[in-house]
């Protein structure tokens, strides 16, 4: 791919949580548009924190986080929703809504941006189809297997056609084969131009992808 401007860049980023714990310190890296990057490290290394800084869920204590040309570290509260509409997020704890169907979970991001029901339905079904869950659209997420729930999270994350996809431990508690199939889904999105950041400690699941890695250890780049 031709050299392009970085779509994500961290400069001397530190994150200290209230209470004084430094979850991240001295982080410097860049991700180019269309890149696939895996953030690895042991539990507590700061992987989730790093992804939260990109999505403006947390704010860096010092340093600069740039996402798609915007300085997320100093971003106004009112601007955050519009940043997030350009991001697809897969959360470590899923954050699925169990009071509604699989289909309605995927509809939510489209309702937030005010798409017509007709257009939204079409896009929601297309996203479910891509992750192989179209047949389960009427089911409650509770009745899905662990791997299916992860795929549902991915469908919800991509339904808005984001330019950046962030996934936090998307293969946790999945067997190796299922984990690999989920990682394949991320690669397929990356192959159509989506910038993808995946946080994982599951190196076996990504070994076949020969990916670029950003290794963290105790909040520092290893």
């Amino acid at each position: 791919m031709a050299a392009s401007a970085p779509i994500i860049s961290f400069r001397e980023v530190c994150k200290r949580y209230p209470g004084g714990y430094d979850a991240l310190s001295g982080i410097n890296f860049e991700v180019d548009t269309g890149e696939l990057l895996f953030v690895t490290g042991h539990s507590g290394a700061g992987k989730s924190t790093l992804l939260k800084l990109v999505a403006a869920i947390e704010r860096s204590s010092t340093g600069t986080v740039l996402v798609a040309g915007q300085n997320v570290s100093t971003m106004q509260r009112a601007a955050r929703p519009f940043l997030r509409r350009n991001l697809g997020l897969v959360f470590q704890d899923h954050k699925l809504l169990y009071d509604r169907s699989v289909f309605d979970n995927v509809m939510l991001p489209l309702q937030v941006i005010g798409l017509t029901t007709k257009d939204a339905s079409r896009r929601a079904r297309a996203a479910l189809d891509k992750v192989g869950l179209l047949a389960r659209e009427k089911a409650n997420p509770m009745s899905l297997s662990g791997g299916e729930q992860q795929r549902l999270c991915i469908a919800r994350a991509v339904v808005n056609r984001p330019s950046i996809l962030l996934a936090d431990e998307p293969t946790a508690s999945l067997d190796l084969e299922t984990a690999r199939s989920v990682m394949e889904i991320f690669r397929s999105f990356n192959q159509v131009g989506v910038t993808v950041l995946v946080a994982t400690h599951d190196l076996a699941a990504i070994s076949q992808l020969q990916p670029r890695l950003l290794a963290l250890s105790k909040g520092r780049q290893a």
Partner: peptide
């Protein structure tokens, strides 16, 4: 939960 998720996927106040 719905409010939290909505905020995380780009809902305005």
């Amino acid at each position: 939960d719905e409010i939290e998720v909505s905020r995380l996927i780009g809902a305005t106040d």
